[in-house]
């Protein structure tokens, strides 16, 4: 997998200081705080973390796919190919969604319309954005089904979602996402519901297609193996913040944040020495309401000191390189 770190041109996606709140009815909970990252052409950028870390809400905010209210962007900037997404009108957002940004969701069975034939769902963005006729869009839909390597594409185009297997449905989702040749593909846990051999097929397909289109892939996942295999750049999220950001190689070889380290150590692996006990992290990830002034990981952290009551900034030191940053007073 050729790692692409060279920044060809301006970033496709540029998120700066994104803060998001959720109105609970009484107070505003902090869901995402001060999140910044970029994705350049040809790159696979991962947002990784456990449930509740703020990965999905960050990704879904990019194309305004969230109910607002109760969710609100309280600060920060999202730029897609240079345009400020927050100043776009709802109509402009609809023109971007599915056109410049393709999205692959985790659950193809709920994301696909059960009452429409497969080809119709792939053709829809082509008719909407590219002004193709339905018959031209249908021909293109069949081509796309071939591109995502669905065997017997002509027959499958006439099928309904329930007639396909989970892997095939996810291929259809990929076909829809790439139909308008987007600059950015957002894949939110795209293979979590799939078997491991099918997972590998879909992820290889997604990364190949993204690079083929010269776009960027934003991969949201909790699977550190998947990140290692496919991502060029990794953002580790915890309790709504990025706690470490680095090129994949740097993160895995020289992760500095204790959470990154603990997360990697707690995955049982298929290679390497087998420890009698796994290194686990005591306690559990905090809910958004548990916002404290200090480092959110401190209550679970073995390296905690008094200083952790103050929030550490995301920064590098003389050992980090290539823009590797971490937010910790007592790094490894």
């Amino acid at each position: 997998m050729p790692g692409s770190l060279e920044k060809s041109g301006p970033p496709i996606l540029d998120v700066r200081g994104l803060c998001m709140g959720i109105w609970s009815g009484k107070t505003e909970l902090v869901a995402v705080a001060d999140v910044s990252f970029r994705a350049y052409s040809g790159q696979v950028v991962a947002l990784v973390g456990e449930s509740g870390a703020g990965k999905s809400i960050t990704a879904m905010s990019l194309t305004h796919l969230l109910p607002m209210p109760p969710i609100k962007i309280t600060a920060g900037e999202i730029r897609l190919s240079g345009r400020d997404m927050q100043t776009q009108s709802p109509k402009q957002i609809r023109d971007i969604r599915g056109n410049e940004v393709g999205i692959v969701f985790q659950e193809p069975m709920t994301a696909l319309n059960p009452s429409l034939r497969i080809w119709r769902q792939i053709a829809e963005p082509l008719v909407r954005h590219r002004r193709l006729s339905w018959s031209a869009a249908k021909a293109q839909a069949i081509n796309l089904l071939k591109k995502v390597r669905i065997p017997d594409a002509e027959t499958k185009a006439e099928a309904y979602p329930h007639q396909l297997s989970g892997g095939m449905r996810q291929r259809v989702m990929v076909a829809i996402a790439i139909s308008c040749e987007p600059r950015l593909i957002i894949a939110d846990e795209p293979t979590t519901a799939l078997d491991v051999t099918v997972q590998a097929q879909i992820l290889a397909l997604l990364t190949d297609l993204t690079r083929g289109l010269g776009g960027a892939l934003l991969l949201i996942t909790h699977d550190l193996g998947v990140v290692a295999r496919y991502a060029d750049w990794v953002n580790v999220m915890y309790a709504g913040r990025i706690v470490e950001t680095a090129a994949a190689d740097d993160l895995y070889r020289d992760g500095r944040h204790p959470y990154t380290h603990a997360l990697l150590a707690s995955v049982p692996k298929i290679v390497g020495p087998i420890a009698h006990r796994l290194e686990s992290i005591a306690g559990q990830p905090p809910a958004p309401s548990d916002g404290t002034g200090g480092c959110a990981f401190a209550p679970r952290c073995p390296r905690r000191t008094e200083r952790c009551d103050e929030r550490p900034p995301l920064s590098g030191d003389d050992r980090t390189r290539n823009g590797h940053l971490f937010a910790c007073w007592n790094p490894l």
């Binding site: 997998m1 095939m168 994949a248 190689d249 895995y252 070889r253 692996k269």
Partner: peptide, 20 residues
């Protein structure tokens, strides 16, 4: 199965299983 180590991942040759 992807191993959480990019260096190991690059050294492995992946045979993708066809079909389901």
């Amino acid at each position: 199965v992807a191993v959480p180590d990019p260096q190991i991942e690059r050294a492995r040759d992946h045979v993708l299983l066809q079909g389901e």
